[in-house]
Design a protein around this nucleic acid. Structure first.
Lengths: 232, 232
DNA sequence: ACCATTTTGTCGGCTAGATGACTGTTTTAT
DNA sequence: ATAAAACAGTCATCTAGCCGACAAAATGGT
């Protein structure tokens, strides 16, 4: 969850220089090809919306570069972020498949290049290519498992654990250290972790005091992940 | 989530007499046909395990009758229940698709009839039938959306809301009233809602005192759902 | 370089819900 | 019918994390 579901979920890859290559899942390649062949390329700027809640679901998207977040409005208060998608990942397919309107917002966190395929072409396209359809099914199954695993962490893990886990996902591993260049504000992170903004701030600073991490302006280093996690 | 994801998610159906018919989603029918044709029928008794965590994922299952729960062990303490599956629903497909071992337990809550298709037949079977594969993809997409919606409720709704919502899902609607024959103990429900056993007991009794529901031995009636929800 | 906006840090008070400990009540198996 | 096991009610205590408020710092646009 949070960070793209399509990465290898447990094992960590040290530094992802070319995200298109690094994805690790064979099925991603097939999907990428499909979009490269039939998709139309659009550029979106940071903070721009790709789709909004309640809109008709007109396209399926493939993120070629950049970073986007999918979030839910949750009526009162601010929306929660359901997950991020990074380069090489499909998004916006589920509502198209089930024939519903958009149920959430898709918004760019960074400038992004997106390939789009119209919803009405998609079904016939994919029915004529069972291998691609199978790839899509596998990719969805992976996301389903990862979302369900996330449900479990929400119920059984405290905020600190979830934050630590999140950092380990977005960070780059250099031996036992994890280097994280935070692309997000504390507030933005709190929407992802599912807690208040202050709790993020306080947790990060507490860890710094305890000497578990180094933390200066959007730059975090976790010294020893195993050790770190064992101390909560 | 919780209760089978394949039901119409928002709109309620009043009383589901024949679950096989009631599912409402066209794709369920195709999948049902496939399993009826190629599946092997097994009977499981109440509390029997269908599969266990860490086992090889040898089959995909279709529940013909009964009720099963999928739960995660969560290391310490007791496992949380990720969801229930009722008659007419597929389960156990995700790990087979991604080629992983089982990540959770599948266990019968009631005596159940299950159709199973071996994992190694499944891929070729489904590649030769793109329409069935498409149906599976749609069904998975629906589950993905519903699981993501559940993530949102876990983050933004209190236990009372989640419990009320759960009851409304498993209950039968009779005009404005909802009649629920609880098939589960408070403890079992607490694993589903994601809270402690006592909180279930206390919430139910508080509602009874307030005259919002009738509640006697595994039998609940919510008098007016709209009104009820508005009072938390 | 400057002002406006956004982001962080910090604190005190507050509450939903966990936990543990017991008792009483149902259910189930023999 | 009865003993054992599972389930439900209740209470007292404890705490993670929320919320509001405000000051300090950083960032960005012109």
């Amino acid at each position: 969850m949070y960070w793209g579901d399509d990465r290898m979920s447990d094992k960590q890859v040290s530094s992802p220089p070319d995200p298109m290559k690094e994805k690790g899942h064979h099925e991603q390649l097939l999907l990428a090809e499909l979009f490269e062949e039939y998709g139309v390329l659009l550029h979106y700027k940071k903070n721009e919306f790709i789709f909004r809640e309640d809109e008709e679901s007109k396209h399926i998207y493939f993120l070629k570069s950049g970073l986007i977040k999918i979030s839910q409005s949750a009526e009162e208060g601010h929306g929660i972020t359901l997950f991020l998608r990074s380069a090489g990942e499909i998004f916006g397919a589920a509502e198209v498949l089930t024939g519903q309107r958009r149920q959430r917002f898709g918004r760019c966190i960074l400038n992004s290049q997106v390939l789009l395929v119209p919803a009405d072409h998609f079904k016939s396209l994919v029915l004529s290519r069972p291998d691609v359809l199978y790839a899509l099914t596998v990719s969805n199954a992976r996301r389903l498992l990862s979302t369900q695993r996330y449900v479990e962490t929400l119920i059984s893990r405290p905020v600190a654990w979830r934050l630590a886990h999140f950092l380990s996902q977005i960070g780059e591993w250099q031996q036992s250290e994890i280097h994280v260049k935070l692309p997000l504000s504390h507030e933005e992170m709190s929407y992802i972790i599912g807690c208040s903004r202050q709790t993020i701030t306080e947790t990060l600073n507490k860890w710094k005091e305890q000497g578990l991490i180094q933390y200066e302006k959007k730059q975090v280093i976790i010294y020893d992940y195993e050790d770190f996690m064992s101390k909560l």
